[in-house]
């Protein structure tokens, strides 16, 4: 493969990636009440990473983002399963989710739900899967 040396792409990427990351995290937390959620947030995050791969090469991204995505996938699945187990300890069916409202210092009245934890697991698994697939293919030259 030819080494792409596109200064404009790289310049744009630097800015765009930050924006997409922020957007992805926003999407993720919006998911509870607005469009968004684990799948979309995770995929958007993965899209940003893909953009980085396309404009830079794999090694330099890996140096700046030292995460083994296979492990990330597994951790995501594990978090999801463990959240599901939570209900079992309270003698409820597997994957029963709970939520309640709390008054936190800065945020004011805030809703905390175990569903968000579950969603984190989903997001991590999605990011991990997408990145494993893309990196595996792009590394195999």
């Amino acid at each position: 493969m030819k080494k792409p040396n596109d200064i404009i792409l790289r310049g744009v990427t630097k800015v765009a990636v930050v924006i997409i990351f922020t957007f992805a995290i926003n999407l993720f937390f919006a998911g509870h009440h607005n469009p968004g959620g684990g799948f979309i947030g995770g995929l958007a995050f993965a899209a940003a990473l893909t953009l980085m791969f396309l404009s830079y090469d794999v090694d330099s991204v890996r140096a700046n983002f030292p995460v083994d995505f296979k492990v990330l996938t597994a951790v995501g699945v594990l978090i999801a399963v463990l959240t599901g187990m939570g209900g079992v300890f309270f003698d409820l069916p597997f994957l029963t989710q709970a939520f309640d409202y709390f008054h936190l210092p800065i945020f004011g009245k805030t809703e905390l739900a175990t569903a968000v934890l579950f969603d984190i697991g989903v997001a991590l698994a999605v990011i991990g899967t997408a990145m494993v697939i893309i990196m595996t293919i792009s590394e195999d030259r």
């Binding site: 995929l43 999605v126 899967t129 997408a130 293919i137």
Partner: peptide, 20 residues
């Protein structure tokens, strides 16, 4: 459908890698 889209992504990836 949301589930289906994501699964479809995974299967397409497998298809691609298989053919590759």
């Amino acid at each position: 459908i949301l589930t289906a889209i994501v699964i479809n992504f995974a299967t397409t990836a497998i298809f691609l890698v298989l053919s590759y």
